[in-house]
Design a protein around this nucleic acid. Structure first.
Length: 447
RNA sequence: GUGGCUAUGGUGUAAUGGUAACACAGCAGGUUGUGGUCCUGUUGUCGUGGGUUCAAUUCCCACUAGCCACCCCA
């Protein structure tokens, strides 16, 4: 490119290169004020359901010792092997951004001696998780999860209730869902099954893609999930995990299903469902959005299951436990697709002013309204009343109070009904009283 | 992490080898007293860097980002 002609500048300051704007890191995004009504609604729904089911909140650090996940989630899992935001501090600590919640909750349970609390301990959490995966719609490197954990109880009804909660939360958010469920038994029965599976598939290795050959070695259970049509044929003949379950797991699973039937939770048995985290045992499930159109990309809205072995792996006593996590980003996105209405934050009254004196009076009036619990809005920096009324309208104010020069002199204010377009003049000192009356906040009960 | 597609104002789109059109939103006005209609004005170094060319937003390459599939999962 030829150098630009020495375009003479008006001022003789050296032409600085304008700093380029900075985007958020890959796979991370801003949740803007416009997004918040959705998030607020989703979070509060999750919380109130969890609370109704007897769960209390727990907050754990976003940064944890890397080892927690290496031991808890499993060294060979994708999450630990290639998706962790791991780093070393100047002090030499090996830390990472948490990729999931369960391991932290179990760590906290052990560390804080919660085994001395009445069992089971039921806790919920919500917050950002981090996985260095390749971003896609509904898959972010920072995403939010809401999760519930029941620690210290092995009864099958807990597993069923957790799945039920997933379904209920989504239902309250206007999202239809189905549970896909399976049992992967105890670690011992799983090893036996894995061996049977490998020896079955090894004879057919010739038909495998490179990808599936790799899986045969690394994670044979996953082969059952393969999209390769050649595998689909072989699958029918392959050993089924149910046939390899130990008696206890089998009965446990049967009871889980019975409870689900009892609670009328829609579910599908999925003998090929395995989960990517090592800590699972017995029950595993995933929650999917139900839709008419084909397969939705990234349709898994949540997942969970039983993890009876996790406590021991993390140095605690043998403690049965189960839980689930929901992906909030995906739920919000699904709600948007479905045009689910969420409560909007509208104001009760908008305070409009005119002139310097009006501004001063309005400032005080706004504060009075606020203190008495009325949701008031304002745009005091604006001069034109027209612009202020536009804002009042945009914010869905039911009422507007107008304080201009004249009103200041008279000691009055105008109350305008924004729907009817009618207005009345009231004593400025009685404005709070008037508004409370109009909004029905007076506490005067009508018979 | 692998493969593919895409990249134009705040948003959604258009056109073009000779520096950009439209809609919506935003802001400011239509003689500082009133909104949900109307009119006017205004908002862009055409993702970043390089190359080809007299000339590039338009062609080529790289990078970056987004999206899609895989992988995996929330």
């Amino acid at each position: 490119m030829t150098p630009k002609k020495p375009a003479p500048k008006k001022d003789d300051a050296p032409a600085k290169k304008a700093p380029s704007p900075i985007a958020p890191p890959r796979g991370m995004r801003d949740l803007l004020p416009a997004d918040q009504p959705y998030w607020k609604h989703v979070r509060s729904t999750c919380e109130s359901v969890a609370s109704a089911y007897g769960f209390d909140r727990i907050e754990t650090p976003i940064v944890e010792e890397t080892n927690l996940f290496v031991r808890g989630v499993g060294k060979a899992t994708d999450i630990v092997e290639k998706e962790m935001y791991a780093f070393e501090t100047t002090g030499g600590e090996k830390l990472c951004l948490r990729p999931e919640g369960t391991a932290s909750i179990m760590r906290a349970y052990i560390h804080n001696g919660m085994l001395n609390l009445p069992q089971p301990v039921k806790m919920w959490y919500e917050g950002p998780m981090f996985r260095h995966d390749r971003p896609q719609h509904g898959r972010y490197r920072q995403f939010s999860q809401f999760g519930c954990e029941v620690i210290g109880e092995d009864d099958a009804i807990v597993d069923a209730q957790l799945a039920l909660m997933c379904h209920i939360i989504l239902k309250e958010l206007g999202v239809d869902s189905v549970i896909r469920i399976n049992s992967i038994g105890t670690p011992e029965s799983r090893v036996n099954y894995k061996n049977a599976l490998v020896s079955y598939f090894r004879t057919k290795r010739a038909k495998f893609s490179d990808e599936d050959k790799k899986r045969l070695l690394k994670n044979p259970l996953r082969i059952l999930d393969s999209k390769d049509p050649a595998i689909a044929e072989l699958k029918a003949e392959a050993p089924q995990i149910v046939d390899w379950l130990d008696e206890e797991s089998k009965t446990h699973f049967m009871r889980v299903l019975e409870f689900l039937d009892e609670a009328s939770v829609p579910y599908q048995l999925d003998p090929y469902l395995v989960r990517g985290l090592d800590y699972y045992s017995k029950t595993v499930f995933e929650v999917y959005a139900q839709s008419d159109d084909q397969e939705l990309a990234q349709a898994a809205l949540g997942g969970g299951g039983r993890y009876d072995g996790l406590s021991e792996v993390l140095g605690g006593r043998p403690t049965p436990a189960a839980g689930f996590a929901l992906g909030l980003d995906r739920i919000v996105s699904r709600m948007r697709e479905l045009n689910v209405a969420v409560p909007s934050q509208s104001i009760d009254v908008f305070v409009a002013q005119l002139g310097e004196q009006g501004k001063k009076r309005a400032l005080a009036m706004f504060e009075e309204l606020r203190k008495s619990g009325i949701k008031a809005g304002e745009a005091f920096a604006k001069e034109a009343i027209k612009a202020q009324m536009e804002i009042a309208n945009r914010r869905n104010a039911k009422w507007a109070i107008i304080v201009g020069q004249k009103e200041v002199l008279d000691g009055t204010a105008i109350i305008r009904d924004m729907d009817a377009g009618t207005q009345e003049i009231v004593d400025a000192r009685k404005i709070v009283h008037e508004m409370k009356k109009k909004l029905g906040l007076n506490g005067t009960v009508q018979a």
